[in-house]
Simulated scan of single mutants.
Amino acid sequence: MITQKYLDELTYEVIGSAIEVHKFMGRGLLESVYHQCLVEELKHRNINFITEMKVPVIYK
């Protein structure tokens, strides 16, 4: 069962990962650069994730 405490800790780690990437890489780079760095940071912190999932979209 997923508890609120688990979600809070996970959120803290994910936001911390994003902050770490931004601190290290700085600003002004392409999104794809930050994406790849965040992938590496999440792996380093042993956070399981899925990236670039396909989402079905219906337009008009």
Rank of each mutant, 00 (worst) to 15 (best):
Y12P: 03
K43Y: 07
E41H: 02
N46M: 12
I47A: 02
V21H: 00
Y6L: 12
Q4T: 11
T51F: 07
A18Y: 05
S32P: 00
E41W: 04
R45C: 00
K43A: 00
M25L: 13
R45F: 01
E13F: 06
Q4I: 12
H35I: 00
V33E: 11
V57Q: 10
I19F: 09
I19M: 08
L29F: 08
L42I: 00
I50R: 13
G26L: 03
H35T: 07
E41M: 06
Y34L: 03
Y59K: 14
T51D: 15
V33N: 07
Y6K: 10
K60G: 09
T51I: 12
I47P: 04
V39Y: 10
Q36S: 13
N46R: 11
M53H: 10
E31R: 00
V55D: 05
L38E: 03
S17T: 02
Y12F: 15
T11I: 10
I47C: 02
Y59H: 08
G28I: 11
Q4L: 15
K23G: 00
H35L: 05
Q36W: 02
M25K: 08
G26I: 01
Y59T: 08
V55I: 15
R45I: 06
Y59N: 13
P56T: 07
R27N: 14
L38P: 02
G28L: 05
E40P: 03
R27I: 14
Y6G: 08
A18T: 02
K43V: 06
L30R: 13
I47S: 03
G16P: 02
I50C: 11
H44D: 15
T3C: 05
H44P: 01
V14L: 06
V55W: 08
V39A: 09
I19S: 06
L7T: 07
V55C: 07
Y34T: 00
K23A: 03
T3L: 03
H44N: 14
R45Y: 04
M1V: 13
T51P: 02
L42D: 01
L42G: 03
E52D: 15
H35V: 03
N48S: 14
M25D: 04
H22S: 06
V33K: 06
M53W: 09
T3A: 04
M25W: 06
S17Y: 01
P56N: 10
G28R: 05
K43R: 15
C37N: 01
F49C: 05
V39P: 01
I58P: 04
M53V: 14
M1I: 14
P56G: 10
Y34I: 03
L38K: 06
L42K: 06
G26P: 04
Q36I: 03
V39R: 14
E41F: 00
I47F: 00
Y6T: 13
I15Q: 12
Y59E: 07
I19N: 05
Y34G: 00
V21E: 05
K60M: 11
I47M: 01
V57E: 12
K5Q: 15
L29Y: 12
S32Y: 05
E13S: 12
F24I: 08
K5I: 08
E13R: 12
S32M: 03
K23L: 03
E9V: 09
A18L: 11
V14S: 01
Y6W: 10
L38N: 01
I47T: 01
E52Q: 12
F49T: 02
V39E: 13
Q36F: 04
C37A: 11
F24V: 13
G16S: 04
L42S: 04
T3K: 05
L10H: 08
N48A: 15
F49S: 03
R45D: 05
M1E: 10
F24Y: 09
T11S: 13
